[in-house]
Design a protein around this nucleic acid. Structure first.
Length: 809
DNA sequence: AGCACGCCGACT
DNA sequence: GTCGGCGTGCTC
């Protein structure tokens, strides 16, 4: 009985979101397994696509003629049975394509690039040969794709049989290799060769001795040259004479920050735990030992030693012969934290950063997949690390919204962590100083087990927080980003040789150009949003689509020269600071200064070595940094996030202020925090000032209950977009009708409304938010709606569904 | 996604 | 009369 393969193909559409059945050719019979990538013919013509084998069956319901699998890409499955199960659940729970979920779990290099090549197969006239093919006999489709004139010409030639379109699927994943050499002759044979040498061929003589000493082993070419001191030419001679052969040796790429990893003989010892930490570690370790997929919420104030709890629990998992996964938000995945884990677990650690090159990321992935690394530290997508036999999963800063991916598949790493915890019978530890309301509410209901670390490790008190009312300040001293209080404290630190951190809350805020005469604001031609000034490139940029244009000298609307920029960017603050404190050395950290690879780490290192007095930055400096000499933290504008139409605005503000406050006075020096705000009485700011999470939690829960927001309600957001506003609105109206008819009466439908940024990338967006407590038909209904939008009446409409959205805007 | 098939308007 | 526009449907 020949076996058949079920293949999910790389065609991400609703209609093709299912396995297709293929014959397994006899030559591949042994190699085809669930989880390998294959190349299959799909559709008419010679088109081939990559796909994943998701099942192997004896029979199929499909009546038509089956095609055979064309090629296999992997010797071993790249998707384990666990990840295969996970991919199905992920596709279902996030309303995504199965194929997208499979690719999301793998390093991007394993996504094959399909190229369409146009090849001349018969005589063509000169015009075609030179103007289109430039004298060559083949052409990449991507080069001519958006030239309709050439395209139609090529189509004619194809019909005439003069050219053919070929499909090429190329695997971009290549293991890095270095050249190695290996003797081809044994000791005696080499000895015979020696006899036939000229007596003055000293180099070759030495080469023979060296080859004999290798005993048939392979060594790196570079290494052999270093040891023998012989020239490459000598080895090449030897190769010619058949004494040795060159072979590729597979090596792992070494990420820059990996250098300096201690060898496994000199690892750092665990720190001594205080009573709270020890209690937490014991509970977690019991769960690990009992194979209990319990979820813990580890709530500890900043500086309470959460990381040490993670590390010692991970150590226990390793001791049990299991593996461990530790997730950290991208923004706090600093060299500081990575090195701390490496010092503890050495070469067992693999790190998955966003700043790794694709090749480095692939290599780290392979190390994990082969079981060479048992501890994985990484950001969101590392939750799909191919670890086997997981004993513990840690999510640090579990409240961070960056754990939710904001494109399809819109998964939340916390939910995936819980799924994998359950599958592996392993506990999940969610850690935070300011847990998300959802998680804390679950702890209250005993769905999660709450573990507390209420004390800082050195019994330090939390730094006092001063709130400066900027309304008074502006009245007394005029417009400035700096209050007198903050300036005074900064000057004081400068004089004492201590350092300061200044944070500019950029959310919902940027520098834009406005005409003082007519009030026109410079906007993006593609998106409904103002352009942001970037002094480093001297351009105006759109943060949504990347559009870029030169800084105008006059108003595009009324041609007035009175055009100025408004708002507060880090650059503008830096300039102001230079004027106010001329002697201060400032490091500015924002997306612009950290774009280049390694800059983030470099700037932090400079600040750590006290090569600057003030670190000025956006949210990216709020998390995880630990500089003993920092005794002052200033927040320039605490409340810019509060005015946003977002039900999590208060929670985010509270988190941000709590986190940034923790940056002050972490060593033996007392720290101080100054928060400038126009809303000094807002509860989020007042509760942060008092370091009072409990009070904030109660207040916020009350408001969420009143307004019907999470965690009292579940939410789903549906979005539809179209280049024409009326079409987007129309599509959403139809969807609204379907929802209204299909949902239970207790479910609340908000909208349809235009999104806060109604136009993005030349498309108009409309949305609906659904709030529900229990609605058994919702899930299926949403799938039906997605299916419906593939049909007439929804032409060119893109519909997406965001379960449990992080923002409503 | 990519391609073929099929049905209507403006041209060699 | 045909060429080619795009709306519709299918891909194991």
């Amino acid at each position: 009985m020949p076996e058949l393969a079920q293949v999910v193909v790389d065609v991400p559409t609703m209609q093709t979101n299912q396995p297709y059945t293929y014959q397994i050719p006899p030559t591949l019979e042994k190699q085809i397994q669930v989880g390998v990538r294959v190349i299959v013919p799909f559709g008419n013509g010679r088109r081939t696509v990559q796909g994943f084998v998701v099942g192997i069956d004896q029979e199929t319901k499909y009546e038509g003629k089956l095609k055979p699998i064309q090629a296999i890409m992997d010797l071993q499955p790249v998707i384990s049975s666990e990840l295969m199960e996970l991919s199905k659940w992920l596709a279902d729970s996030t309303y995504s394509f199965w194929i997208s979920c499979l690719y999301t779990m793998l390093p991007s290099l394993l996504k094959a690039k399909t190229a369409r090549i146009i090849r001349i197969i018969d005589e063509v006239d000169e015009h075609v040969a030179f103007d289109i093919f430039h004298g060559k006999d083949e052409l990449e489709m991507t080069d001519v794709q958006d030239n309709p004139k050439i395209l139609s010409e090529l189509l004619k030639l194809q019909k005439a049989g003069k050219i053919a379109i070929e499909y090429q699927v190329e695997d971009r994943a290549h293991a890095k290799t270095v050249t190695g050499i290996r003797p081809r002759l044994n000791f005696e044979q080499l000895e015979d060769e020696r006899i036939s040498l000229h007596s003055n061929a000293h180099a070759q003589n030495r080469l023979i001795s060296y080859l004999q000493s290798l005993n048939g082993q392979t060594v790196k070419f570079k290494e052999a040259q270093r040891i023998t001191g012989l020239k490459p030419a000598t080895f090449n001679q030897g190769q010619k004479k058949g004494w040795l052969e060159k072979v590729p040796i597979e090596v792992y790429r070494q990420p820059l920050d990996m250098q300096g990893t201690p060898d496994d003989q000199h690892l750092a010892a665990p720190l001594t735990l205080n009573a709270d930490q020890e209690a937490a570690v014991n509970k977690i370790n019991h769960a690990i030992d009992d194979h209990a997929s319990q979820v813990f919420l580890l709530q500890g104030v900043t500086g309470s030693g959460k990381t040490e709890v993670y590390l010692q629990s991970i150590a226990n998992a390793l001791k049990q012969g299991k593996t461990a996964l530790m997730l950290v938000p991208e923004i706090s995945l600093t060299p500081q934290i990575v090195n701390r884990v490496r010092r503890r677990f050495g070469s067992k650690v693999a790190v998955l950063h966003s700043s790794l090159s694709n090749g480095e990321r692939y290599d780290e992935w392979r190390r994990i997949e082969r079981g060479e690394a048992q501890v994985v530290v990484g950001a969101r997508s590392a939750i799909f690390a191919p670890l086997k036999n997981i004993g513990l999963i840690v999510l640090d800063e579990e409240h961070e919204s960056s754990y939710k991916q904001d494109e399809s598949p819109r998964y939340h790493a916390r939910e995936v962590a819980k799924w994998r915890g359950k599958y592996n019978h392993a506990p999940v530890v969610l850690g935070s100083a300011t847990p998300s309301l959802e998680s804390r509410a679950r702890a209250v209901k005993n769905v999660y087990h709450l573990l507390r670390l209420p004390h800082r490790v050195n019994q330090q008190i939390l730094p006092p927080i001063n709130i400066v009312d900027m309304r008074d300040e502006v009245k007394k001293h005029g417009e400035s980003n700096f209050s007198q209080t903050l300036l005074g404290e900064l000057a004081d630190r400068l004089q004492k040789g201590e350092q300061s951190i200044l944070m500019l809350n950029r959310r919902g805020f940027s520098s834009f150009m406005m005409c003082r005469d007519c009030g026109a604001v410079l906007k993006c031609p593609n998106c409904d949003i103002s352009l942001t000034l970037h002094m480093d490139t001297r351009t105006m940029k759109c943060h949504y689509c990347g559009h870029e244009e030169p800084i105008p000298h006059e108003c595009p609307n009324c041609h007035s020269r009175q055009i100025r920029y408004y708002g507060t960017g880090t650059e503008k603050v830096e300039q102001e600071l230079h004027q106010l404190l001329p002697g201060a050395r400032i490091i500015r950290m924002d997306v612009d200064t950290t774009r280049r690879k390694g800059m983030h780490a470099k700037l932090l290192r400079q600040f750590g070595h006290h090569q600057a007095d003030i670190l000025l930055g956006t949210q990216m400096i709020a998390k995880g940094l630990d500089f003993p000499n920092v005794t002052l933290v200033g927040v320039l504008n605490a409340d810019t996030g509060l005015g946003l139409p977002d039900f999590r605005a208060s929670e985010r503000t509270f988190d941000l202020l709590s986190q940034v406050s923790g940056r002050a006075g972490r060593a033996n020096k007392q720290g101080k925090v100054i928060i400038q705000t126009y809303n000094p009485d807002h509860y989020a700011i007042q509760d942060a000032k008092e370091h009072n999470y409990e009070k904030f939690f109660k207040q916020e829960m009350m408001l969420r209950r009143q307004a019907g927001y999470p965690p009292y309600y579940y939410t789903v957001r549906l979005m539809a977009s179209h280049p024409e506003e009326a079409k987007a609105a129309g599509a959403m109206a139809k969807i609204y009708e379907q929802l209204k008819n299909g949902l239970s009466s207790s479910t609340i439908i908000l909208g349809p409304t235009p999104r806060a940024i109604a136009r993005m990338k030349r498309r108009y967006y409309y949305q609906i938010v659904i709030k529900y407590k229990k609605d058994p038909h919702l899930h299926q209904l949403l799938f039906d709606i997605l299916q419906n939008t593939q049909s007439r009446g929804f032409k060119d409409v893109q519909v997406s569904i965001d379960p449990d959205p992080q923002y409503f805007m």
